[in-house]
């Protein structure tokens, strides 16, 4: 059990940064550049862990990234990697989808606590943008997830995966998938919903005062969290994964779809993104809910 948890974490860290490297590479090709090597994100992470930290705004400042990392790690441990329920199921027998949804918002709250303790206005602006966007993101995602719970008469991720043995939910409930996917794009924090850390507007937002080891922690949790969200989408809508290759294939397809959307659309403003999320995907999700 303990070894399983460790493997899950290492895989999430590895795949998270690998996919982030791919994101940078694909974006570079779209811009007409070569881009960095695939391992560049690992180098960045390791280098940041070796750097000093020059800032000190009290213990809550340091607790912020740690709470974020705890949220990301707990989320990934409660999501089963495979649908056969034998290995790498983590803590999923002890908690269901509702627990996962709860842990998913722990990160932004931890971030807000950490950012609130330093006086940098850009941090406060970033976190305000993040929490405002979260309002918009949660609505369609929760409606889609509630739809799945009603359809499967269960909140257990394992049961929802098992019920997809014949038809994946992406085919059985396409409207719910579309709504959840748009909201998933926002959860990933990529364009067009990258209002939180926009470097040209709020100077990397919540991370503005973080450097060195705590920035490394924030980056690592972000990589782990991204992989957790990919996993959750695969488990809920693509029937989970039978094998490692299946897992890689399904998460990769979802990931590439999100990268292409991110590269095609420009950034929304905060008000626009909340407006869009509360109108388009929420309405799609409600219509999808009627068909359940």
């Amino acid at each position: 059990m303990f070894i399983d948890l460790l493997i899950m974490l290492v895989m999430a860290y590895g795949f998270g940064f690998l996919y982030y490297g791919l994101y940078r590479n694909i974006s570079a090709r779209v811009h007409g550049r070569f881009g960095p090597s695939l391992a560049q994100s690992f180098y960045d992470s390791i280098k940041l862990f070796t750097k000093d930290t020059s800032t000190d705004f009290g213990w809550m400042f340091f607790a912020g990234p740690i709470i974020m990392a705890s949220g990301a790690i707990l989320t990934v441990l409660f999501i089963p990697y495979f649908n056969h329920g034998e290995r790498l199921v983590g803590l999923s027998p002890y908690g269901n989808l509702i627990v996962v949804l709860y842990f998913m918002v722990l990160g932004p709250l931890g971030n807000a606590l950490g950012v609130g303790s330093h006086g940098n206005p850009f941090g406060a602006m970033g976190i305000t943008r993040g929490l405002t966007r979260l309002l918009g993101l949660e609505m369609p995602f929760y409606i889609a997830v509630v739809g799945l719970m009603i359809a499967n008469e269960s909140a257990d991720i394992g049961t929802i995966m098992a019920n997809q043995a014949e038809t994946y939910n992406i085919i059985a409930h396409p409207l719910l998938f579309i709504a959840a996917f748009i909201s998933f794009l926002g959860f990933l924090g990529k364009s067009p919903f990258d209002v939180v850390g926009a470097p040209q507007e709020v100077y990397s937002g919540p991370a503005v005062e973080f450097g060195g080891k705590f920035l490394a922690l924030a980056l690592s949790q972000s990589a782990i969290f991204s992989f957790a969200k990919l996993l959750l989408m695969v488990d809920l809508f693509l029937g989970g994964a039978d094998s490692l290759w299946d897992l890689i294939l399904k998460t990769f397809v979802l990931f590439v779809a999100s990268v292409f959307v991110g590269n095609v659309y420009g950034r929304f403003t905060t008000a626009q993104s909340v407006d869009f999320l509360l109108k388009v995907p929420t309405v799609i999700a409600i219509v999808g809910l009627l068909f359940v």
């Binding site: 070569f34 960095p36 020059s54 470097p199 990397s204």
Partner: peptide, 22 residues
């Protein structure tokens, strides 16, 4: 930093704040 010379190939990227910079 942009498409013409693309220094990201060498692992060099721009950041917005000195706290994160090397």
């Amino acid at each position: 930093f942009t498409s013409r010379y693309d220094i990201e190939r060498l692992g060099v990227v721009g950041v917005a704040t000195p706290r994160q910079a090397d």
